[in-house]
Design a protein around this nucleic acid. Structure first.
Lengths: 347, 347
DNA sequence: TCACTCTGATTAAACGATTAATCAGAGTGA
DNA sequence: TCACTCTGATTAATCGTTTAATCAGAGTGA
C-alpha cells in the first residue's frame, strides 16, 4: 500500500552531504543564507542525484499548486488546438502546468467545470467564454480571453480591427456589395468582427449580414445558405466571420458552378488548419495566439504572485488588444462587375 | 506571504464536532471504524461547511496526485478537440484531472513533455503518439491510443475495418478505380486505413495510393494534387485517409469543374467538424472517441489502482479495437462510367 | 572584557490528509 | 472474577517542502 515516491528528496541530499534539509532547500531556492561554496556543492549533488522537487510537498506548504486551469466551454471550436497549444506553451515557460476543463458546450456546466478546477487547487485560470458569461464566483485569479469589447476581458485579438482589414482588402479589390456570414448572433467576437467590417467599408459600399444560427432554426441544421441567390442579387464578396463558415460558403458556391475568385470572393477569419490547403486557398485574418496567450498567462502569473490572499479577481493586462494580420490567399480577387449568372443553379 | 487555503479542513470539522481528525477522515472516506450515527453527523457537518479535501495534502500522504497526463505530440491534428474532450470527460468521471502536454510536433520534445508530466506527479498518462514512438521511459503507467497494429497499443479505433467499410461502400456504388490519398507514409494509422481499403476491394477493382508528404517534398507545400489528371486516367473514387485530405481533394476537384458526386466520389476519415457542413457533405468514417477514451482511461485507472509500486508500464485493455462507423453523406454516389472530361482543366 | 552585529548554519513548526498502532470500555464465556 | 474479544474512538507518525526563529561563533568597537 505504501507508494514511496521514487527519487531522492531534500532529506536524502541533506544527510548525504551532512547538512540540514533547510540548508539544502535554501541552497536550491537561492533564499536564506548559505555560503557560496556550499550552495555549489549542494546544487551539484542534487543534480547528479537527479533530484526533482515534490510538487505535492511544495503545494501543501506554500498553498500554490503550480497549475493553471484552462476553461474552454466551446471545445468544439476548431480554434481549440491553437489556443490550447499557445496557453500550454506560455504556461510551461512560466513553470506552470495546464489542467484542461470543458463543459461539453453546456452553459450551466461551465460553473461546474470551474469549481472542479478550483477544487483541484489551480492557482489561477484562463477562460475563453462561450458567450458573455460572467466569471465572478471563482476563488482564484481569472484571465479572460474573448474580445476587447467584453467587460472584464483581459486580453484578446482586436477582432474589430481584423474586420477592418478585411473590409479594406475587399474595398481595394473593387467590391461594393458584401455579404457578412456569421453563425452566432450572440457572440461578442462575431459581432465585433462584423462591426469592424462595416466600419471599414468606404462610401458607396453596402453590406448585409446572414446569421446561420437563425437560418438553421427555421430550415433545419446543415441547410444550404442560398448563396447563389445572393450572387444573383449582386453580392460579389462573402466575408465569413470564421473560416468554418467561409468553407461552407466556398463549397456551396463552387458546387453551384460559381468560380472563386473569378466570379466572387470569399474571406474568412482565424486561419484554421484547412485554410491554406483548400482550393482556392482561403484569404483570412489571423490572430497572434502565441502573443495573446503570452500576455494572458504572464498577467495571470503576475497577479498570482502579488496577490497575497487567494481571491477571485479578474486579471488585467497592459496590452489588452492584439492586432490581427491579414493573410491574402487565392479566394479573394478583383470584383467581377458581371458574374456569369448563366451557370448558376441552386442545388 | 502566508496564503492559507480557504475553506475548512479536517481539523476544523473535528474540533467543531469535538472529535478527532482521524475519525473525521475515516467517516468521510468510509474506512476505519466509526459508528453509523457519527458518520452521518460528520458528513452532514462537512457538507454544510462546504468541505473540499486538499489535493495537495492527500497527494503528499498517498503519493497519488489524482491527475492524468495527456500527451498529444501532433497537436495540429484537428482530431485533437474530440480526443481531449473525450479523455477529459472519461477522466473526470473517474475522479481524475487532466494535464495536457504537447511538444509542438517536435519528436525529441515528446520525451521532454513526458518527463515534465512525471515531474508534476501524474499518476498515469494517455499518449497519442505521432509515429510509432516507443514510450518506455516514463515512470508511470502509460496507455497508448494509436492503432491496433502498433505494438504496445492499449486501445484504438479499428482503422483497418474502417477502411474496409469505405471500400465496401464504394464497391457497392460501382466504383472500380480508387485513388487512396494519404499525407504521411510513416503513420501507422494511415497505413492501416489504406490497408483496410485495399483488402475490402472486390475482384476487378484497382487502387493506387498518393502520398501527399512525398508530393510536397518534390513540389513544395500546398501544391495541387493533380487530381483532374487522375480523373482522366479513369479514377472515379477518391478515398482520403483523413477528412483534411478529403477536403483538399474535394475543393481541388470542384475548382476544376468536376462535380461531386455526379462525376466522381470523395470519402474521408474521422468525421471532423467541417464534414457535415461542406457542400457536398462528406461521406466519412467516424471513430467512437468516447468509447475509446473510456476504455483507455478505465484501463489506466485500474492499473494505477492495482500497481503498488510506481512503475513505468504499458497498460493493456480487454477490448483493444473499437469498430468505426460509416457515415454516408452526399460526397459519394454511383460511379459514373464516363465522367464529362470536357470541362476538366488543370489549374 | 563586554556588548553588539553579522554570517552561516540548524531547529522546529507548520501545511492537510491518511493510517497503523493504541486504548478505553463494554460485553462475553468460563 | 479474570481473560478475552469486539467496537468505536484517539494518538501519533508520516509524506516533502518551506520558513520563521534560533543559535554558535567570529569579528568589531568601546
Amino acid at each position: 500500500m505504501a507508494t514511496p515516491r521514487p527519487g531522492p528528496n531534500l532529506s536524502r541530499i541533506a544527510t548525504s552531504l551532512g547538512v540540514s534539509v533547510a540548508t539544502v532547500s535554501n541552497a536550491l531556492s537561492g533564499k536564506g543564507r548559505v555560503s557560496g561554496q556550499l550552495v555549489e556543492r549542494i546544487r551539484e549533488h542534487a543534480a547528479e542525484l537527479g533530484y526533482v522537487p515534490s510538487q505535492a510537498g511544495r503545494a501543501l506548504r506554500t498553498g500554490r499548486s503550480g497549475v493553471l486551469g484552462l476553461v474552454l466551454p466551446d471545445i468544439a471550436n476548431p480554434l481549440f488546438p491553437k489556443i490550447a497549444q499557445a496557453i500550454q506553451f506560455a504556461a510551461s515557460a512560466a513553470g506552470y502546468g495546464v489542467l484542461i476543463a470543458d463543459s461539453r458546450g453546456d452553459v450551466a456546466a461551465q460553473t461546474e467545470a470551474i469549481n472542479r478546477l478550483v477544487e483541484r487547487g489551480v492557482d489561477g485560470m484562463v477562460v475563453i467564454p462561450r458567450r458573455a458569461t460572467r466569471i465572478s464566483s471563482a476563488a482564484c485569479p481569472v484571465a479572460v480571453i474573448d474580445t476587447p469589447s467584453t467587460p472584464g476581458n483581459t486580453v484578446a485579438a482586436d477582432h474589430w480591427q481584423g474586420g477592418h482589414e478585411i473590409a479594406g482588402h475587399l474595398a481595394g479589390l473593387g467590391h461594393r456589395r458584401i455579404l457578412i456570414i456569421g453563425n452566432n448572433q450572440e457572440s461578442n467576437v462575431q459581432n465585433d468582427r462584423a462591426g469592424g467590417i462595416r466600419s471599414g467599408m468606404r462610401p458607396g459600399m453596402h453590406s448585409e449580414t446572414l446569421w446561420i444560427d437563425r437560418l438553421e432554426q427555421e430550415n433545419g441544421g446543415d441547410c444550404p445558405l442560398g448563396l447563389p441567390e445572393k450572387v444573383r442579387q449582386g453580392f460579389t464578396a462573402f466575408a465569413a466571420l470564421s473560416d468554418l463558415q467561409a468553407l461552407r460558403a466556398l463549397t456551396e458556391l463552387q458546387q453551384a458552378g460559381i468560380t472563386i475568385p473569378t466570379d466572387v470572393s470569399v474571406t474568412g477569419f482565424d486561419d484554421l488548419i484547412w485554410s491554406p490547403v483548400v482550393t482556392p486557398s482561403l484569404t483570412t485574418v489571423r490572430m497572434d495566439m502565441d502573443r495573446i496567450a503570452g500576455i494572458a498567462v504572464s498577467a495571470l502569473v503576475d497577479t498570482i504572485r502579488t496577490s497575497s490572499i487567494r481571491e477571485g479577481m479578474l486579471v488585467t493586462a497592459e496590452i489588452e488588444r492584439v492586432a490581427m494580420q491579414l493573410i491574402v490567399r487565392q479566394s479573394s480577387g478583383p470584383a467581377n462587375p458581371a458574374p456569369r449568372t448563366s451557370e448558376m443553379e441552386n442545388m
